[in-house]
Amino acid sequence: MRGYFSTREYVLAALLAGALLVTASVIIPLTLPLRIPGLANAANAPLASFFLVIGLARLRKPGSLLLILGLYALTCLLIHPVIFSFILTGALVAEGVSWLLFRGFATPRAQVAGVLLYEMTSFPAAMLFSLWLLPARALKPAWYVFLAAEAAIVVTTLAGCLAGLKVARELAQAGKLNLEGS
């Protein structure tokens, strides 16, 4: 009996979701009290995209991004439903668009595009869900503040993705990461 993902792929996805949770638990509590729109996402994006790109470089199949982020979102459901909702929305949009454009994550371009799409979608999704579920606490920034926040997220995500791709190649050379698929 063989499923779509192998045991090794499930384990790697789970541990990468754990790494995302660890980096978010360090960065986000430090940025949230400042209540600057997009600051938490922009500060966390380089670390999250670093691990996501390494995961996608290894997994490569369609659905890989959704698997890692789905596990991450399910764990975050214990912390707050809003966090679960925006992570899952970002993951679904990024996975859908990546599937339409690249049919998976076989190339570095597809890997970077997938992660960038997730980071760019999850910020407006977070604002919309906050506005819907917690209207009293939600931030309502002006459009130019929103655009500046999105630009900052793009820049920091790209930096994380490039670092992730570089480290993935180094890990492959060291024999720690199989980039040729399972």
Partner: peptide, 25 residues
């Protein structure tokens, strides 16, 4: 940390496979 994650992933999947874990079963 990336090295640590991959190291754990390798060891854990090996342990699960040795115990005949099948994700589809």
């Amino acid at each position: 940390l990336a090295f640590v994650v991959l190291e754990y992933a390798e060891r854990l999947s090996l342990a699960l496979e040795l115990r005949a874990f099948d994700p589809a079963a």
